[in-house]
Write a protein that binds this DNA or RNA. Structure first.
Lengths: 193, 193
DNA sequence: GATAAAAATTGAACAAGTTCAATAATCCCG
DNA sequence: CGGGATTATTGAACTTGTTCAATTTTTATC
C-alpha cells in the first residue's frame, strides 16, 4: 500500500526506518472517481494527500466561470492548497479527479504531529515545498516571457506522458489561453510539419 | 546590526536564544549601491541574504532583452534564487539593487550547517518557502485570470509603499506588460476619476 | 543651474489572443 | 450499438496589448 509513497520519500531525504513507518501509518487510503473533488473553493484544506494512482487538476474558477489550472497532479504528486492548509483560510481552489484515483490522505493535525516529532519529516516538507516553488517560478518566467504557441510546444515536450492523458480544454486552461486559440495553434503546427 | 533580522525570525517561529545567536553570527553585513548586482544570470547562487535596508528587483532577461520581474525585495525580504541555490545549477535570474542597500549575507555551506544543527532553522526556512510559494501561487492566479488594467490597480492597492518607490518601467516589467501600455492604462484611470 | 540621461507619454500600425456562433468529431454509457 | 454529451475545429469580428518612433517630462549629476 505504501510502496510508492515510501519510494517518493526516499528519493528526497534519508530517513530512519522507524520514522518512515511512523509517518506512513498516519495515512489512510481513499479512492475518488473521475469528476469527484478532493477540495472545493471555500473549504478549508484540512487534509493533504499523496497521489498513488490517477490524475488530478488543481484550479481556480474566476468570476466569469473560466477555469485556470495551477497544476496537474499525477502519480507521486501531492494534493494540498498550501495557502488554505497553513493559513487556515478558505481555499480559492478546486482539486478535482480527472481520472479514477487512489490517494493516501493525512490530516492537518497528524501532519503537524509528524513535523514536531519526526525530524526527517520537517526536512521532507521543506524540500517538497522548495521543489514546488522552483517549478512555479520557472512556469511564471515562461508565462511572462513566451507566446502561447511556444508555451504549448514547451508543455508537450516537457510533459509528454501527461499531455496524452489530458484533453485540449485542460491544456488550454493550464496555458492560460482559450481552447479555440489552442486549436488554431495546433492547426498551424500541423501545417508547418 | 541584527535587530531587523531577529524580529523577522521571531515573527515566524519560536527559537531559543542560543540558536538565535548561533544563527545570526553566520551572517555578515554587506552594502550594495543602486544598480549593483547580488546575482547575475549564469552564476550559481552560493549566498542567501536578508534585506536590512533598500530595495532589490529579482528578474529574468529573455532572449529579446526584455526584463521580467519575479518579485521585488524590500526590507525584511530574502534574496536567493532557490532553484540555483538548491539544485546547484546556473541561475536564470538577476538580482539587482534599485536603491542603495544593506544586506546580511549567509553562505550556502553555513546555511546547510544551520539547517543540520539548529532545529528551529529547518522550520524557519520551511515556513519562509511556504510563504513565498503562497505569494507566487496567488500571483499566478491573478496573472491567469485578470486583465493588465486590473492587475495594475491591484498592485498599487496591494503594495502602496512599494509602488511609490518604483518607476513605471519596473512596475510594467512585474505586471508582464509593455511600459507604453501601462502608460495608457494610467491615462484611462486618471480620466475616469 | 545647465545639461545629459532616464523615464513617461502619445499615436499609428500591427500582432496576439478572445468571443461568439456554427459545425464536426469523439466519447461515453445505458 | 445508438444517442446524448462532451470535446475539437473553424471563421469572422472584436479586444487587448505590442512595437516603433517621436516628443515631453523628470531626474540625476557635475
Amino acid at each position: 500500500m505504501y510502496t510508492l509513497l515510501k519510494q517518493s520519500i526516499i528519493d528526497k531525504i534519508s530517513i530512519p526506518d522507524a520514522e518512515m513507518e511512523a509517518f506512513c501509518n498516519l495515512f489512510c487510503l481513499k479512492t475518488l472517481k473521475k469528476k469527484e473533488f478532493f477540495l472545493r473553493e471555500g473549504d478549508i484544506s484540512r487534509y493533504e494527500a499523496f497521489v498513488k494512482k490517477g490524475l488530478f487538476k488543481v484550479y481556480h474558477l474566476d468570476e466569469k466561470g473560466t477555469e485556470h489550472i495551477l497544476y496537474f497532479a499525477p502519480e507521486n504528486w501531492w494534493l494540498v492548497d498550501i495557502d488554505s492548509f497553513h493559513n487556515n483560510v478558505p481555499s480559492m481552489l478546486y482539486i478535482e479527479a480527472i481520472e479514477d484515483c487512489e490517494i493516501l490522505v493525512i490530516s492537518q493535525s497528524d501532519k503537524e504531529f509528524a513535523n514536531q516529532t519526526l525530524p526527517s519529516i520537517e526536512k521532507l516538507f521543506r524540500i517538497m515545498t522548495q521543489k514546488a516553488y522552483v517549478n512555479l517560478q520557472r512556469r511564471m518566467i515562461r508565462n511572462l516571457s513566451k507566446t502561447a504557441d511556444h508555451r504549448y510546444q514547451d508543455f508537450i515536450k516537457r510533459y509528454p506522458d501527461l499531455a496524452v492523458r489530458l484533453n485540449n480544454l485542460q491544456i488550454s486552461a493550464y496555458l492560460g489561453i482559450s481552447h479555440e486559440f489552442l486549436s488554431k495553434i495546433r492547426k498551424k503546427m500541423v501545417s508547418k510539419k
